[in-house]
């Protein structure tokens, strides 16, 4: 048993077909904050998120969640469903044969109040009027909200977001990010966003972990890192903001 709440990763490595995707990752992700894992495409950030979620085991290393050992050296000790986490996937993973309501309700298991909770969650995400529609009948933004509603319905302690905003226009993206901010703050949910877009991360997260080629490059407070970091993605973002005479507010 470890000392802190939240995620604690110790020397986590992952190899796919001879290629090391994650190398000796060690970090702490404390609860009640919003975290961003930022890195270019192929840097291993989504793999890291899936390992934290318990969808795949680390080849080496240990993962603790709220002081419990949940994964270690090729084994998942605590399955994803028992980790009090939810996840929104990059492709949203909505089941196309189920209506919006069914998509949310199926995720609630045998809960007697499943129907009520599902509707509540849909209302929270402002799509209760679309409950009977199938995913294919929803717009991109509505699908995003549905995925969020499904993730939040189970009242998780941690919400993992795996690049869920790609392909959305700026307005919808901002709306959804605001929605997530409000809802996670209201329900005291720790958010961990994986993205390659510093804008998304800056909009949602206060703390970030920068990852490149399977290794953690830097981590810490977003604003501090924005000023000092030499990480190419952040530098490019900083230059962009400067040219627009803008800055990140705390």
């Amino acid at each position: 048993m470890k000392g802190i709440k939240g995620f604690e990763l110790e020397n986590v490595s992952r190899v796919y077909g001879g290629k090391t995707v994650l190398r000796d990752i060690s970090c702490r992700i404390e609860p009640n904050a919003s975290w961003g894992i930022l890195g270019p495409s192929g840097s291993g950030k989504s793999t890291l998120l899936r390992i934290m979620a318990g969808l795949e085991p680390p080849d080496q290393g240990k993962i603790f969640l709220d002081k419990r050992l949940v994964s270690r050296d090729g084994a998942i000790e605590v399955p994803a469903s028992k980790r009090q986490i939810s996840m929104v996937f990059q492709d949203l993973a909505l089941w196309p044969n189920l209506t919006a309501e069914e998509n949310v309700r199926l995720g609630l298991g045998k809960d007697k109040d499943a129907a009520r909770k599902a509707m509540e969650s849909l209302s929270m995400c402002s799509i209760s009027h679309l409950a009977k529609r199938y995913p294919a009948q929803l717009s991109g933004g509505e699908q995003q909200r549905l995925a969020l509603a499904r993730a939040l319905a189970a009242r998780p302690a941690y919400l993992l977001l795996d690049e869920p905003f790609s392909g959305l226009d700026m307005e919808i993206k901002s709306n959804i990010i605001n929605k997530i901010k409000v809802l996670t703050a209201a329900h005291k949910i720790t958010t961990i966003l994986v993205s390659h877009d510093p804008f998304e991360v800056s909009s949602l997260c206060r703390r970030i972990i920068l990852i490149d080629q399977g290794e953690i490059v830097e981590s810490g407070d977003f604003k501090t890192l924005m000023q000092n970091s030499k990480f190419p993605l952040l530098r490019a973002f900083r230059d962009c903001l400067h040219s627009l005479h803008m800055e990140i507010k705390g």
Partner: peptide
């Protein structure tokens, strides 16, 4: 991601097979 989502939400293999 369909099976990942099912796992995250604790949906058993049987239920996932039948319902989805």
């Amino acid at each position: 991601s369909w099976s990942f989502a099912a796992e995250i939400h604790g949906i058993s293999l049987g239920k996932f097979l039948i319902r989805v």
